[in-house]
Design a protein around this nucleic acid. Sequence first.
DNA 1: GTGGGTGCAAAGTGTTTGCAAGTGT
DNA 2: ACACTTGCAAACACTTTGCACCCAC
Lengths: 157, 157
Amino acid sequence: MVSPEKIAAKEKFLLFLEGKNLRITSQRQAIIDTVFTTEEHFTAEQLLEWSRQKDQSVSRATVYRTLPLLTESGLVREMDFGKDYKFYDPNYAEHPNHSHIVCQDCEKIVEFESDKIVKLEDEISAKLGFSVKSQRLQITGTCDKLKKAGTCQNKCS
Amino acid sequence: MVSPEKIAAKEKFLLFLEGKNLRITSQRQAIIDTVFTTEEHFTAEQLLEWSRQKDQSVSRATVYRTLPLLTESGLVREMDFGKDYKFYDPNYAEHPNHSHIVCQDCEKIVEFESDKIVKLEDEISAKLGFSVKSQRLQITGTCDKLKKAGTCQNKCS
DNA sequence: GTGGGTGCAAAGTGTTTGCAAGTGT
DNA sequence: ACACTTGCAAACACTTTGCACCCAC
């Protein structure tokens, strides 16, 4: 099931491409369909694999050439969780200010939004003479409940 | 001028090495002296260059082999500002919860601390079932004052 | 038809590692 | 002495790019 917001985001991206006079090829179509159908964070390699399930002809090069367009459009955000490869988060169109909690035991990632934090960020930035354009907040933690239960072996939930 | 806190941090790191039965070689000495003498964020390459000014024999490999020790000790933090290379922040020993504002016009980076934000992070994390171990908050913005003045050409301040 | 797009494979780039020699403790 | 360290250069892993062909508009 794809949320209406995702569909809208996809629409926005198509307009973004149009605005730059870029074409909707079948390969891009497959990549775009993939991106705006998932809620999960993904890597370039995963995107390649998923896209290929829709269109066998998608190449790694095209994926890597499309990712900058996606981030440039503001609909997808590049994330670094300290791994070798980057992750991409397709949920920024709907929740531009969301943050992440990463469990250091199981690597599960939870998203959350906090208006209070956003407000504080604005205040502090203003005081320092800046206008906030975007924010990235990443909390690393351990999940207490399962920790107490004695297990949190890579499933945490 | 090196702050007393930096000197203490260096001392802590030497103890950290000792605790792991690792040796204080002249190369490590040069690297450590460099790290705990600056307040600036640096890259692996910069650290190599600076360290070589103290000891010509420091090699790139040793720098790359020492960086994980520094981050593991908790006294230096690896940062990703979206560039190809990573930055390292030596100010975490003194200010474990500080955050960064990055000016998107001039790339200047300002550090700040906010107890209020830290508190909110704790609250939210607890509500979601996590205990905060560390946090990274990075705000991207533009500096208004100079923007109004019409110039912010890579100096911002 | 034309300018952008594609796959492939080669090239890049920052980082890691095997190895033989060196060195702190 | 022994185990940890080092420099060098080769190896890596992810990403980018040159090129000749292809295709959306």
